[in-house]
Write a protein that binds this DNA or RNA. Structure first.
Length: 581
RNA sequence: GCCCUGGUAGCUCAGUGGAUAGAGCAACCGCCUCCUAAGCGGUAGGUCGCAGGUUCGACUCCUGCUCAGGGCACCA
């Protein structure tokens, strides 16, 4: 609708340019806004205000000229000049009514657009270390990433979703040792358990399963072991334990313990995400980048182009020359590659796999990381603009007024699954998405649990269920509804509440496009709330199942269209549309 | 010190450079003989953190200040 009015305005402006009332300029952006109140019409443009200066005219006079040169259109009832020079467009009722037929015709494809032009797009999100189950903090990234991906798919991007598994590195070794120590305890070895190992009960479960599957295969002489606990520095102590574990068990046997932890936790993560309605196309392993030498090759390339130098026994990347605040280590003094080294290889792989739009969704604590990853792409002769990093602010967890700490290592956290079991998937998904991603999210467990019926998601779902209920009761009242016939009767939709609802339905495609291009799914959430409100108001003001066939059919068609849009929108956010509540 | 985010009604938050700054919760007053009251209508509630600047016009853009959260590793 906006585009059609834009086209009308463009014709008028072109005519004015031909008459030399307006100067010729190559770039005029015609902006059309949805009007705030109905007294300002349906759409408004500030074009006369924008062009008044170059045209050396006053805005109201220019607006008058623009209106005079607008071509005939059967969309518009009339056009007004208001305030300092706004042009307000008042649509004909028939123009509003047409949206019903369009929605019912397109069904779940209503709202689709092709602005994405099939650009190969990779959205990477969650990517939590597989060292423990997902907790509430990860939930926000999951809900946000899933919604952004869905929106991009709807707007014509060719989207794949990916989870990067950090299955290499020290954290994973700590996990393996945690499992091993619990296993030894389970087998009766009398040893302490370090504070900085993973404390969660799930470690015990993995250890017990390890014992069931492999009996006493991982037991070693514990006399030497206890000496390691005398190291006072906690981090050095755990490094010593890792080293001891590997040398005692041997690489292959150590790998069994390591993988037992990794795969068990990964399976839990996949299950939890699936239950949360979040699915990934790829699970990309960091270890695979190491084992197939991609990381080494990357470092070689960088070395060839003199982006690497040696200092203090380590290999450094000159990222500071490419916008980072300082240089970064790629290979540590001990010969091990850093996490950043694999991340360079990972991002290169994203580009080499053909993705032109690469979206990373990270926690806000990683923001300092953006500059170095972009620097690495540039050093590898790739365009850093392909990478867009979206930061999601922290979710701070409260139980009433008490702020809860969340740490995977200490095992003190509420898991995503626990949240889901307590407040339900729909409420949790919507709660996460409601807040702008840059906004800190205070997640009050008590509020989410005890007052979950206040969650706006129920308000929207209720609108959907009410519509279903109307259609369920229709046969009992002796009425039938035929969609094709009803579309002929739309001209009776002229009540103020009906016009308002029609206008709201027509905005949906705009909302989707806007939410997708700005990566702001909360816009859709707020729209759905508004739409539900317009419907509930209409529901209270007018009866749908009335005796008059024409009016009844038109109203049923309108609410059927409303139901469709509610369902389309909710499904993009991963929320169900129940028929009964 | 430097770099991100925020600061809008009592609370939690929306708000494309535009017209009278909005919603939910909380408070108050109404609405079920009627398709689900998990709903609807109304009243009240504001120095849009502070101070400058840009312009026809600023909650929105720029600068400075201030408060809050986060980040500044040979951790991931």
């Amino acid at each position: 609708m906006k585009k059609q009015i834009q086209a009308l305005l463009l014709q008028s402006l072109t005519a004015l340019q031909a008459k030399q009332i307006l100067p010729i300029s190559d770039h005029v952006e015609i902006k059309i806004d949805n009007s705030r109140g109905s007294e300002h019409g349906d759409f408004a443009s500030n074009i006369a205000l924008m062009l008044a200066k170059p045209a050396r005219s006053n805005p109201r006079e220019l607006a008058q000229n623009i209106i005079a040169h607008l071509p005939e259109s059967d969309l518009l009832d009339h056009v007004e000049i208001a305030g300092p020079g706004f042009i307000n467009f008042f649509l004909k009722e028939t123009a509003h009514q047409a949206i019903v037929a369009e929605i019912l015709d397109k069904g779940d494809r209503y709202g689709d657009s092709d602005i994405g032009a099939n650009i190969p797009t990779l959205v990477e999100f969650v990517s939590a270390n597989p060292t423990g189950p997902l907790h509430i903090g990860h939930g926000r990234g999951a809900a946000y990433g899933a919604a952004v991906s869905s929106l991009l798919k709807k707007t014509g991007f060719d989207v794949s979703c990916e989870y990067y598994i950090n299955d290499a590195g020290r954290q994973m070794d700590i996990l393996a040792v945690s499992v091993w120590l619990r296993y030894l305890q389970h087998c009766g070895t009398d040893i302490p358990f370090p504070d900085n190992a993973y404390q969660g009960d799930y470690i015990n479960d993995i250890a017990i399963k390890l014992h069931n599957d492999h009996a006493e295969k991982f037991i070693v002489n514990s006399d030497n072991l206890s000496a390691l606990f005398k190291e006072e520095d906690a981090e050095l102590r755990i490094d010593g334990l890792i080293k001891y574990c590997i040398t005692q068990l041997g690489d292959e046997t150590y790998r069994i313990v390591f993988d037992a932890g990794l795969y068990s936790i990964l399976a839990t993560i996949k299950d939890d995400l699936l239950g949360f309605g979040v699915e990934f196309d790829n699970w990309f392993s960091e270890r695979s980048l190491v084992s197939n030498n991609t990381v080494d090759q990357c470092i070689e390339k960088l070395t060839e182009q003199s982006w690497i130098y040696e200092k203090d026994g380590a290999q450094w990347f000159r990222s500071s020359e490419l916008g980072d605040e300082k240089d970064r280590v790629l290979i540590r003094e001990n010969g091990q590659a850093t996490y950043f080294a694999s991340d360079i290889a990972y991002h290169l792989s994203k580009i080499e796999r053909g993705y032109e739009k690469i979206i990373d969704i990270w926690g806000a604590d990683h923001h300092g990381y953006i500059a170095r990853v972009k620097a690495s792409l540039q050093a590898l002769d790739q365009s850093p603009e392909k990478l867009e990093v979206l930061l999601v602010q922290f979710a701070t967890l409260y139980r009433g007024k008490e702020k809860l700490q969340m740490s995977t290592r200490s095992g003190e956290f509420i898991t995503l699954k626990e949240l889901q079991d307590e407040v339900g998937k729909d409420a949790a998904r919507f709660f996460y998405i409601m807040r702008k991603s840059e906004q800190h999210l205070d997640f009050d467990l008590e509020l989410a649990k005890s007052e979950s019926s206040d969650n706006p998601v129920y308000y929207i779902q209720y609108a959907h269920a009410r519509i279903c209920s109307v259609f369920r009761q229709m046969p009992d009242k002796g009425y039938a509804y035929n969609e094709a016939d009803s579309l002929k009767d739309l001209s009776t939709l002229i009540e103020p509440h009906e016009i308002k609802l029609l206008a709201m339905l027509a905005r949906y495609t705009d909302v989707i496009e806007n939410a997708a291009t700005t990566y702001e799914p909360h816009q859709l959430a707020y729209y759905l709330k508004d739409l539900a409100n317009d419907f509930h108001t209409y529901y209270n003001a007018n009866q749908f199942l009335v005796e008059d066939d024409v009016i009844r059919n038109a109203r049923l068609a309108l609410i059927a269209a409303t139901k469709q849009v509610l369902q389309n929108g909710l499904s993009l956010l991963g929320v169900s549309s129940p028929e009964v509540m």
